[in-house]
Design a protein around this nucleic acid. Structure first.
Lengths: 229, 229
DNA sequence: ACAACAACGAGAGCAGCGCTCTCGATCGTT
DNA sequence: AACGATCGAGAGCGCTGCTCTCGTTGTTGT
């Protein structure tokens, strides 16, 4: 067993460079990534790329996975950096981190949360990383319940809704009351919609002051889940 | 001025058939519409399509415009059909109508609310039709205020948020209190996110009972804007 | 040290795409 | 009846993802 051979090292660097160039193309040209353009940028012929990625979709899948991880990192870091007992501060920090990452990596965000590519099926590997942002929000709720600064709402849930949410709670955060989880999921849904609206240009003419609008909207959701002011 | 000539009539029918075939392709193959495939389906050669639409994007634009109108029709019809004084019933009817239309026309919904196509810029003609669903929701709020069954929240808004919302209110529904509009926009954002999550497969493993979940989530938003139970 | 093998880049080629141009055929009008 | 507009077919351009072959180069076992 020797140190990694020259070939293995070069291969790893090649893969990294392909991903980097692909990300650059993604940022400038949008979501329709051209393997041939990537190859050209690297001074290679298009078929050579296939030594490293079996298909364009496989390259996209890797980029998607890493994007999920990057977004997850950004969100969790924001949460960990905030004062642990300032629930509302954490909430806003997490939401802003998601938005900031999305604005800074719009094409990658589009890959994650935009329309699914027709022929493309997301592999199961994406399920866990995709849960990190909502899990972070749920973590704030869990902490709030634990130290008594947050009370679960006493909404009555239809049986089917309660059952579905109970299973989710069991997987995400055992013991989380279903009515609170329901409101948490509404917040997560709203956050996704908010970022998508902004990124996809739906606020262009309507909302000049995006930062203030975003904070106020996420504040409404903080109210909805019952975070103390 | 004569009756429309045979040629004009045939041309109109051709355009209609192209749009119909294109919609069918959209439904089966997803958002990447192939002009050549449409032409093949019509027993034509691809270049013949260009006698009727100057480019693929122009065909897409027409489909998008008509999709906006169809969604707007569905939503407004649902609102008009419900009991005018049952605010909550109207709210749920409107939300369900939007969701039903999206589920029944998923590719077209994706065209409207999915990631924007890279090279494609939405023409201004889409702005007004795109406002019809949120306008319908706002209409429910306006009616509620008018007959006293709905009270505007007394949220304090940051100045920038209040100013932006005041302009929107002036355009959409003059006199609508900004704090209520803020919550209405949160509801609309949430509704878009909710439908997109479902359509883009993000609830696939998590929520088996989609109908009940949807109604409960939109109910939470009805609470948020203050609709009486 | 040399042979055998695996990994690699270049190139040609296939089928598909959007789009353009040309050329007859057809239709409506004068 | 003749002319001009309209239309469909066909060839062709440059682009795409992807496959296959061929010569070269790095790695490994004897």
């Amino acid at each position: 067993m020797s140190a990694p051979s020259i070939r293995a090292r070069v291969r790893a660097e090649m893969i990294d460079e392909i991903k980097a160039v692909a990300r650059r193309h993604l940022a400038t040209d949008g979501a329709n990534l051209s393997l041939r353009a990537v190859a050209r940028d690297m001074g290679m012929v298009s078929s050579a790329i296939y030594r490293y990625f079996p298909s364009r979709d496989d390259l996209l899948t890797v980029l998607i996975l890493e994007a999920y991880e990057a977004l997850g990192d950004a969100v969790e870091t924001a949460d960990a950096t905030a004062d642990r007992h300032d629930l509302r501060g954490r909430w806003h920090a997490v939401c802003r981190a998601a938005r900031d990452w999305a604005l800074a990596h719009s094409a990658e965000y589009t890959l994650l949360y935009g329309s699914p590519v027709p022929g493309y099926a997301a592999p199961d590997d994406t399920v866990l990383p995709a849960q990190r942002p909502p899990l972070t929000l749920v973590g704030i709720l869990r902490d709030g319940l634990a130290d008594g600064h947050l009370a679960a709402p006493d909404d009555e849930l239809p049986e089917q809704v309660r059952d579905d949410l109970a299973e989710i709670a069991a997987a995400l955060s055992p013991g989380l009351p279903e009515p609170l989880l329901a409101r948490g999921m509404a917040s997560w849904t709203h956050l996704f919609g908010l970022i998508s609206f902004e990124l996809f240009g739906r606020l262009d003419r309507a909302i000049p002051h995006r930062d203030a609008y975003f904070d106020h909207q996420t504040g409404l959701m903080a109210d909805l889940v019952g975070l103390p002011r």
